[in-house]
């Protein structure tokens, strides 16, 4: 509990983060690490650590955006498709002869624009978030299919793009995607914690009515949250196109559910008002570490969805049990979120 330990500010801050990052998640992560290490000693090596880091970059970028949207009380199902479509934008524009920088900017802009469309449909037309972004999932996916005519975009790779995609490592272990993900995590962390927009997000998600009464322009905050989510999906798309070296029509399918799962394991709630950037990192890390551990210990690919499902269940169950325990001693199970909101 963040309230009980006030000895040093750092310690109390850390314990605040840990208690809101859901202890279930931490327990699961430790369990996965122990099991994987007992199977293969290479799991805890530096090499494999960066392996996991580069595997989790894309889900992490999406999970960060998803976290912001979840905090405002929404949900964004379109991020996987938007990521795929923006990857297509880069690939196409580069193959049309545009400079890489321009193509990348255009792709990120497309991501933000699709987020804007999501936000406007939700706030102006009043459609449920689930449905509006589900429709966008279909539209973005369909557009990529139409555009690619069913065969992957190829032949857009260039020397700098190999570096941007993380396939070439000019700085040792640190690849560009990992650095971008770190910067994005830090940015989302800072925005949520230190800016008015961040506080408004928590306010809108906790009680949009109360937020509106205290002068927050609720629709604008919600639209902005979707724009940020789309923008991050665009960034992820740019990096992903560089890593896969080909943009398949179904690139990015299913990523949206992973991103939501990661955000929720990390302490975000679908009811809004809760969640933070480090939680998204934690949630993504658990999913990536589990997948990696299964590969290392030779678990057959057909079993992997089953195991991922069980890990997800286990982490929320543990979280729920500890929360119940905590609820007995203090009557404010969501205290960290409340504290962040004000």
């Amino acid at each position: 509990m963040s309230g009980t330990n006030r000895s040093t500010p750092v310690a109390s801050q850390l314990s605040g983060v840990l208690s809101s990052t859901s202890s279930g998640a931490i327990a699961i992560l430790i369990l996965v690490c122990v099991l994987a290490t007992s199977q293969s000693s290479s799991f805890l090596s530096l090499d494999n650590g960066f392996n996991i880091a580069s595997q989790m970059v894309f889900v992490l970028l999406l999970a960060l955006g998803t976290t912001i949207v979840l905090i405002t009380g929404g949900i964004d199902l379109s991020v996987g498709s938007v990521m795929g479509l923006t990857a297509g934008v880069v690939a196409y524009l580069v193959s049309q002869g545009l400079p890489l920088g321009v193509a990348m900017l255009a792709a990120v802009a497309v991501g933000a624009l699709l987020g804007l469309v999501n936000g406007l449909i939700i706030t102006k037309l009043g459609l449920p978030d689930f449905i509006a972004t589900l429709a966008m999932l279909g539209v973005a996916r369909g557009l990529l299919f139409l555009w690619t005519e069913g065969t992957p975009f190829i032949g857009y790779m260039s020397k700098p793009y190999y570096v941007i995609g993380g396939l070439e490592r000019p700085f040792g272990y640190l690849t560009i995607p990992i650095m971008v993900a770190m910067v994005a995590t830090f940015a989302v962390f800072a925005v949520l914690k230190y800016t008015a927009f961040g506080r408004h997000c928590y306010g809108v998600g906790s009680s949009s009515d109360a937020a509106r009464r205290s002068g927050v322009r609720v629709p604008r905050i919600r639209v902005l949250a979707y724009v940020v989510s789309g923008l991050l999906a665009g960034v992820a798309g740019v990096l992903l196109a560089g890593q896969t070296t080909a943009v398949a029509p179904d690139l990015g399918s299913g990523y949206e559910l992973q991103a939501i799962a990661a955000a929720i394991i990390g302490g975000a709630a679908l009811s809004g008002g809760r969640g933070h950037a480090l939680g998204a990192v934690m949630g993504t890390l658990i999913l990536a570490a589990t997948a990696n551990a299964m590969n290392i210990s030779g678990v057959s690919a057909v079993w992997q969805p089953v195991v991922v499902g069980f890990v997800l269940l286990l982490s929320v169950i543990l979280d729920r049990l500890t929360e119940k325990q905590r609820g007995r001693s203090a009557h404010l199970p969501s205290a960290p979120a409340v504290a962040t909101a004000h």
Binding site: L125, A132, A135, M136, L137, G138, V139, R141, G142
Partner: peptide, 9 residues
């Protein structure tokens, strides 16, 4: 998928 998405909205 596009038509379905648009028609849902």
């Amino acid at each position: 998928t596009i038509v379905t998405g648009v028609s849902i909205v």
